[in-house]
Simulated scan of single mutants.
Amino acid sequence: MNNEVWARHANPLSGWSRVSILPLFAIAVWSRDWIGWWALAPVAIVLLWTWLNPRLFSAPASIDNWMSKGVLGEHIWLSRSKDSALSHHAPVIRLLTISTFAGAILLFYGLAVLNLPLTMTGLAVSMLTKLWIQDRMVWVYSEVGDGKGLALLE
């Protein structure tokens, strides 16, 4: 994403509505049990939503909220994760990323075999650890970007 898209994605409506992606994806994939190959249509819609979401919203009037700071922190982390000033975040972010990935494996396996407990466990682990990562990104933002706001993207 370019800086303009990151600025739009910093809109809390974008960030919070993106939280819907994994549950919607799980339902779309699960729908193959009900509608067969037609399930490709809701899967395609969810994938399109994933791409469109950070582009649909305008840049926020204010970033004085948890989600906007988390999105800006993510931008900082992706561009400066090797920065020694941020190195103390790396072990926690690495562990949370591995946990998110483990949850995603459970989720996808549960979806593959249509096992509801595995699917729901994977979904819960993936979403909770992703939100925990988001909280860590707020911390990254508060250390590096606080007071700079969307100017970070210029």
Score class of each variant (00 low, 15 high):
residue 112 A to W: 09
residue 59 A to W: 01
residue 79 S to N: 14
residue 20 S to T: 10
residue 63 I to V: 13
residue 57 F to M: 15
residue 92 V to D: 03
residue 83 D to A: 10
residue 8 R to C: 02
residue 20 S to Y: 14
residue 49 W to V: 07
residue 124 A to R: 00
residue 57 F to E: 06
residue 111 L to K: 03
residue 126 S to D: 02
residue 93 I to A: 02
residue 41 A to V: 11
residue 90 A to C: 00
residue 45 I to F: 10
residue 67 M to H: 02
residue 47 L to H: 05
residue 71 V to F: 01
residue 33 D to K: 10
residue 127 M to Q: 08
residue 19 V to M: 11
residue 20 S to G: 11
residue 80 R to N: 15
residue 150 L to H: 06
residue 55 R to Q: 09
residue 59 A to N: 02
residue 121 T to C: 07
residue 143 E to Y: 01
residue 29 V to W: 07
residue 25 F to K: 01
residue 12 P to E: 13
residue 64 D to Q: 13
residue 100 T to V: 10
residue 153 L to M: 06
residue 65 N to W: 01
residue 106 L to D: 06
residue 152 L to I: 09
residue 17 S to L: 11
residue 104 A to V: 13
residue 111 L to A: 08
residue 68 S to D: 08
residue 130 K to W: 10
residue 34 W to S: 09
residue 99 S to F: 03
residue 81 S to M: 12
residue 148 K to S: 09
residue 34 W to H: 11
residue 102 A to T: 14
residue 119 T to W: 00
residue 35 I to R: 02
residue 39 A to N: 04
residue 98 I to K: 13
residue 43 V to R: 01
residue 143 E to D: 15
residue 123 L to Q: 05
residue 78 L to H: 11
residue 71 V to P: 05
residue 87 S to F: 04
residue 56 L to H: 03
residue 78 L to S: 14
residue 63 I to L: 09
residue 10 A to C: 10
residue 18 R to W: 06
residue 31 S to W: 05
residue 24 L to C: 13
residue 77 W to H: 03
residue 44 A to E: 10
residue 127 M to R: 12
residue 82 K to V: 09
residue 10 A to D: 03
residue 88 H to M: 05
residue 102 A to Q: 00
residue 77 W to S: 12
residue 117 P to E: 15
residue 149 G to S: 04
